[in-house]
Amino acid sequence: MSALLEVDGISVSFDGFRAINNLSFNIGEAELRAVIGPNGAGKTTFMDIVTGKTRPDAGDVTFGTPPKSLLRMNEAQIAREGIGRKFQRPTVFEDQTVADNLTMALKAKRSPFAVLGWRPSAESQARVAELASEVGLASQIARKAGELSHGQKQWLEIGMLLAQEPRLLLVDEPAAGMTLAEREQTTALLVRLAESRAVVVVEHDMDFVRRLNCKVTVLHQGAVLAEGSLDHVTRNPDVIEVYLGR
């Protein structure tokens, strides 16, 4: 089976420091992957390259079938191609309701005239209700986003990304700051989402990664150090030395 995302031998340096060093990575159409590694391993730079925020000095990044090079696209074009990124801190419109946040995120024409003339339809309202239900916020749909718990805001932002119908989701440390119950619900959500799209979870929390029960990629000094099940990579002597032993 061909990969949905193929990262091939990318390298990038900042002021002489090599943040990514000949990194190769791929993920399939409907796959959940955890990416772990110590601080400075290149996890954020890897996501920056995939989403077009940073350009590599060497290598290529291709996406889709047939594969298209993401290096020829800007950030907006990459997002429209079907790649959504969720940052660690939730960014939602706090004064707007859950429904309003999801409505604003729906995939639609963005020209000034289209935006000015847009009115919610029965179809768009049904889609918003579906999204709220999918991320566990059906009972909160009329509440202002600012009234939600930290975990609920994270789910709302995931819902806003889903509104764009992405084929690949990049999710940065989703478990940070969540209660145990919220973490369990987030695990179930991410596992469910990966049944129909690719999901990459960058995470420090090893217990959360274990709950995801997926293939793990370990980064170190901008390169892949190990890959496989969590049990497999945590038995790797190099991983123990550079990451788990700290």
Rank of each mutant, 00 (worst) to 15 (best):
M1Y: 00
S2D: 07
L4V: 13
L4E: 04
G9D: 15
G9Q: 15
G16D: 08
R18K: 15
R18M: 03
A19W: 08
N21A: 14
N22Y: 06
N26I: 01
N26L: 05
I27Q: 01
G28H: 06
G28Q: 03
L32G: 09
R33V: 14
I36K: 07
G37I: 08
N39H: 10
N39L: 10
G40I: 01
G40S: 10
G40V: 01
G40R: 05
G42S: 06
K43G: 10
T44R: 00
T45M: 05
T45A: 05
M47P: 00
V50G: 05
T51L: 01
K53G: 09
T54W: 10
R55G: 02
D57E: 14
D60T: 10
T62E: 02
T62V: 10
F63P: 03
K68S: 08
S69L: 05
M73Q: 14
M73Y: 10
I78T: 02
G84I: 00
R85C: 08
V92K: 11
E94K: 15
D95F: 09
Q96W: 13
T97L: 09
A99S: 15
T103M: 15
L106Q: 09
L106Y: 03
A114D: 15
A114R: 09
A114M: 09
V115G: 07
W118H: 15
P120C: 02
P120A: 09
A122Q: 14
E123R: 11
E123T: 14
S124I: 10
V128I: 15
E130I: 06
E130H: 12
E134Q: 13
V135K: 01
Q140V: 03
A142Y: 06
K153S: 04
I158T: 03
G159N: 06
M160E: 11
M160S: 13
L161M: 12
L162Q: 05
E165A: 14
E165W: 02
L169V: 00
L169M: 13
L170A: 07
D172F: 02
D172E: 03
A176T: 13
T179K: 08
E182A: 06
E182Y: 07
T186C: 14
L190S: 05
V191G: 04
L193E: 13
R197N: 00
V200I: 14
V202N: 07
V202D: 12
V202F: 08
H204G: 00
D205V: 09
D207H: 12
R210G: 10
R211A: 15
N213V: 02
T217R: 09
V218S: 12
L219Y: 04
H220C: 05
A223R: 12
V224N: 02
V224A: 04
A226D: 01
E227Y: 08
D231E: 15
H232C: 03
T234L: 06
P237G: 04
D238H: 01
D238V: 00
V242F: 02
V242H: 06
G245I: 00
R246H: 10
